[in-house]
Design a protein around this nucleic acid. Structure first.
Length: 931
DNA sequence: CCTGTCACG
DNA sequence: GACGTACGTGACAGGG
């Protein structure tokens, strides 16, 4: 069969697969002989996933995996320094290269490489030929060098981000259409491949020039006309170098191939060959999975006798004596070389504080294997000779100059070939970003723990170290002291700082070894790789962006609140007949329940009166004093938590407020916002909502807010399979009114706000694991009546009860529940008896729903930087179902369009929801207007 | 440091 | 049959 119209060719960039697999996995070795096979294992898993993902209606008719041939390519003849700054492949990866070819053939997928050419050239030639023959092409790679091929039936697919890149995507990245990409690359050059380009010209400028002059040759021939003297000179001076650069980046579409397009036709895998190979590699899980899939029997694998020990026993004891203090360039270079030899390094930064937007770098520690770690002190202060309390500002001796050390570390920290391992890497990334270093790629032990043990325990370093290494880390407290006499880390003497700092990196590396295999065992690798790890750089960027807050607006509100509160306080004291602290529930309770003998008082655990708002609200119908207290409390809350406190969070340098998001804080997968919490800025009361007027855009910009409409109810409808709910959502109905209509037999056109309100409360109750008591309290109706509502609800939507029962049963059996994307939320209390059991079972019912919604918006956020690249728009905040952007005035509509597309399609392609996700958008000169 | 209260989704 | 319950967070003030 010839290749032609209607055919679809997939071209997989094999080398990219290998390197990704290699860095994504710990250094696995084959049990029987110690052959390193980690990259092969990852490669096979990726191929397997690829085959699974591409079995659908859009399946390719032809496919091939293309590899780079070892050795030099024809480009080295053009330019001897081409790719000269690439480090050699890691030692333990080299023997795995031929094995990946074998693996590809075992999957019965065509596999090619040609001496003297790079994979990109073979891919280019095949893509051109397939296009000429009238077929479609998908290139599975994220390599920007391949983007020049896109267009006219050729697309790219970034398998890691699950992102399709078409002409528009290329244009968004390079600012020019695909056919002009080489021109831009020739000008901008590429530091990774060592393509020189034109010095001082980056992608932005290059695109601008190309768009102005049409193409590179025209530009170079008319370079004399360029207005900016610098640019003009650069282009004239480096014309030859730019032409060579173009040859370097230009892919060869016309090379000779020793095989035909036809020969790439997709073939079914042959069970025997594939299983044979996997078994020989001793990949037990994958062998079994493939065998199940192909309906064949997994051969008896050489079973290791050992039981599955959770964490490998540590044979290297912790020994602070072995940690090295790095004080000069030669020593630092040795550690950098060690990192390159391994391909990974654990990194930890020491700073002057916990606030990454303010703290200054004090030192960096590295670890390359268990027990082998160093600390590079950089800005430790000398101890004062007179023994003064604060010491001087002179630097302690024996430290490398900060600039020199960072200059040496930067290439390694940014090298895509070196995996940087950290515990809570967002912190270190943010610190280093302020010194011009963009750390990547990363692994994060905190997130590895969260992905596999969310709900079981905390994920801080101390907890993890004790649990998985049996080692209590050196506490920081004695080093820094506390209270007034506390010092910052740069004042800690080196002999104490080194053991502490180096140990942190050592622990992190050991945790990585201990936790990495567990990801696969717990089947949460995808969760970690698609929902946790890629969020780190996205959040780091958002937090560094911050949001502008108008201090004057807040300050005026604070004053107004203070005045009103003073008035209320006087009234309250008058009504009470005595002066007391209105803010003390204890004292207030004594006034209300002892002195005035009002009913409904309850005492808390401490024996003090409890005075929550709902109790005061009941009393307020009869008495003025509790009514005034409620007003006072609202103002007090707004003032102390928002209008006062927010002002203290305005960063001196940026004039903006920078929250910090905990990725591993909430059990369900939600983020949590701290210092300050920008996820609980008031909105429900009119008075509180005005606080949002203080959140403003920069001049010439607009705040844009996009939020998911009813996302949790939609997910409930999908998960529990409630036909009536699904239909209502598909028809775009008012969901609470539709629920009310169904439950109370009221036609939609006769719906009253009161009936709708009750249905709304029930809908939310269901998400929370409804109880008659809870609903009764929320709606302020008798418990029996509330129970009647619930019974009727279950009758009309029987799928709900089934879902609740099934979820509880699953949790009881497995000890966890799952979201649609595979996130596990552990429910250790589910089998307890006593009141905890009730809590645990409601939490278990809620977790898949809340957690799936959290996963959806995480996916949207991870895709967002690519989606808005090139637009003058920044993502600033996330509030669970809402994303807030700051956008230049002219780009608002375009931004809303792109963001909405990403958000509404965020579940795809992993989960195809049975209901549409709908996103509402708003814009304005404040958050109040935009929301 | 714990508890109560209340802001958000 | 009684008991106690809506899910998930973080910040602040009071009080020991």
């Amino acid at each position: 069969m010839g290749f032609g119209k209607g055919h679809h060719l997939h071209l997989i960039d094999g080398s990219a697969f290998i390197f990704r697999a290699y860095h994504a996995l710990p250094p696995l070795t084959r049990k029987s002989d110690g052959l390193p096979v980690g990259a092969v294992a990852g490669f096979c898993n990726m191929l397997y996933k690829y085959v699974e993902d591409n079995a659908g209606p859009d399946a390719p008719t032809h496919a091939a995996v293309i590899f780079d041939h070892s050795g030099k390519s024809f480009r080295n003849d053009l330019y001897d320094k081409y790719k000269a700054n690439r480090p050699p492949a890691p030692e333990d990866l080299v023997p795995q290269f031929p094995l990946t070819r074998e693996a590809t053939r075992a999957f019965n997928i065509a596999c090619h490489e040609i001496e003297g050419y790079e994979a990109d050239d073979i891919i280019a030639t095949l893509a051109c030929r397939a296009r000429e023959a009238g077929g479609r092409v998908t290139i599975i790679s994220s390599d920007k060098d391949l983007m020049q091929l896109v267009g006219d039936g050729v697309e790219m697919l970034d398998a890691m981000k699950n992102l399709r890149i078409d002409s528009d995507g290329v244009a968004a990245k390079f600012g020019v259409p695909p056919e002009r990409v080489v021109d831009v690359q020739a000008l901008a050059g590429d530091s990774v491949d060592n393509v020189p380009g034109a010095p001082g010209i980056g992608i932005k400028t290059a695109a601008q020039l190309i768009n102005e002059y049409g193409d590179l040759e025209t530009l170079l021939s008319r370079a004399a006309e360029i207005k900016q003297p610098k640019r003009r000179q650069t282009l004239i001076e480096h014309a030859e170098q730019i032409r060579i650069s173009k040859q370097l980046v230009q892919l060869d579409c016309g090379m000779e191939l020793d095989f035909t397009l036809e020969s790439l036709e997709v073939r079914d895998p042959e069970a025997e060959a594939l299983i044979g190979f996997l078994n020989a590699m001793e990949f037990r899980t994958l062998t079994k999975r493939v065998a199940d899939k192909l309906g064949a029997e997994a051969p008896a694998a050489p079973q290791p006798a050992a039981t599955e020990a959770p964490a490998p026993a540590e044979d290297q004891p912790f020994d602070a004596e072995k940690y090295e203090t790095v004080g000069d360039a030669a020593a630092l270079q040795r550690w950098i070389d060690l990192a390159y030899a391994r391909g990974w390094v654990a990194v930890d930064t020491e700073t002057t504080g916990l606030n990454e937007m303010v703290a200054e770098l004090v030192g960096v520690s590295l670890a390359v294997e268990e027990g082998r770690a160093c600390y590079i002190p950089l800005t430790h202060k000398a101890e004062a000779s007179d023994g003064g309390l604060f010491g001087g500002n002179d630097l302690a001796p024996g430290q490398m100059p900060l600039g020199e050390a960072l200059e040496m570390l930067k290439p390694m920290l940014e090298d895509p070939q070196i995996l940087k391992i950290g515990q809570n890497m967002k912190y270190d990334m943010k610190i280093l970003a302020r010194y011009g270093i963009a750390v990547a790629p990363i692994d994060d032990t905190m997130l590895m723990s969260y992905a596999q043990h969310g709900g079981l325990h905390g994920h801080g370093m101390d907890t993890l170290s004790e649990r998985y290494l049996g080692h209590v880390p050196i506490p920081i407290k004695p080093l820094l002291g506390s209270g007034k006499s506390a010092i910052t880390f740069d004042r800690v003497p080196l002999e104490k700082a080194v053991p502490y700092a180096a140990e942190d990196a050592d622990i992190t590396l050991r945790l990585w070894h201990a936790l990495k295999p567990g990801l696969h065992k717990a089947k949460v690798t995808t969760v970690y790789e698609t929902l946790e790890r890629p969020l780190v750089p996205v959040l780091a960027q958002m937090e560094r962006s911050g949001i502008k807050v108008d201090r004057d607006v807040l300050s005026r509100m604070s004053n107004a609140f203070a005045q009103k509160m003073a008035g209320l306080e006087a009234e309250i004291h008058e009504l009470a007949g005595e002066s007391f602290n209105v803010g003390s529930p204890k004292q207030l309770g004594e006034i209300l329940f002892d002195k005035m003998s009002l009913p409904g008082g309850k005492k808390g655990k401490t024996g003090a009166w409890s005075t929550p708002a709902d109790v005061l609200e009941d009393l307020a119908t009869e008495h003025d004093l509790p009514a005034r207290v409620l007003d006072w409390r609202q103002l007090s809350k707004l003032k102390s938590t928002y209008t006062d406190a927010l002002q203290d969070h305005i960063n001196k340098e940026t004039g903006r407020v920078h929250t910090s998001y905990s990725i591993a804080g909430a059990n369900t997968g939600r983020l949590a916002s701290t210092e300050p919490n920008l996820q609980n800025i008031p909105v429900r009361s009119e008075e509180g909502r005005r606080i949002r007027e203080a959140f403003v855009p920069e001049p010439g910009h607009v705040l844009v807010s996009l939020d998911y409409s009813q996302i949790e109810l939609r997910i409930l409808a999908h998960i529990a399979g409630i036909e009536a709910l699904k239909e209502a959502f598909r028809d775009g109905q008012d969901i609470h009114a539709a629920t009310a209509s169904e439950m109370f037999n009221v036609p939609l056109e006769q719906m009253t706000p009161e009936i709708r309100r009750q249905a709304k409360a029930i809908n939310f109750g269901v998400i929370y694991g409804i109880s008659g008591f809870g609903l009764a309290r929320n709606l302020r109706i008798p418990r029996a009546e509330a129970q009647g509502f619930i019974d009727r609800y279950f009758e009309r939507f029987p799928g709900i009860r089934d879902y609740m029962d099934a979820t509880k049963a699953f949790a009881k059996e497995h000890g966890y529940v799952q979201t649609l994307f595979g996130r596990k939320i552990h429910t250790p209390e589910i089998n307890a008896k006593g009141p905890q059991a009730g809590f645990a079972s409601r939490a278990a019912i809620n977790a898949p729903i809340q957690g799936t919604a959290a996963d959806v918006i995480r996916r949207a956020m991870i895709r967002m930087p690519a989606a808005i690249e090139g637009l003058p728009a920044r993502m600033l905040l996330q509030v669970h179902d809402e994303l807030i952007f700051e956008v230049e005035e002219g780009a608002v509509d375009e931004t809303i369009g792109r963001v909405r597309d990403v958000m509404e399609g965020a579940s795809m392609p992993a989960v195809d929801l049975a209901v549409p996700l709908i996103v509402d958008a708003g814009r304005g000169q404040s958050w109040a207007e935009a929301h």
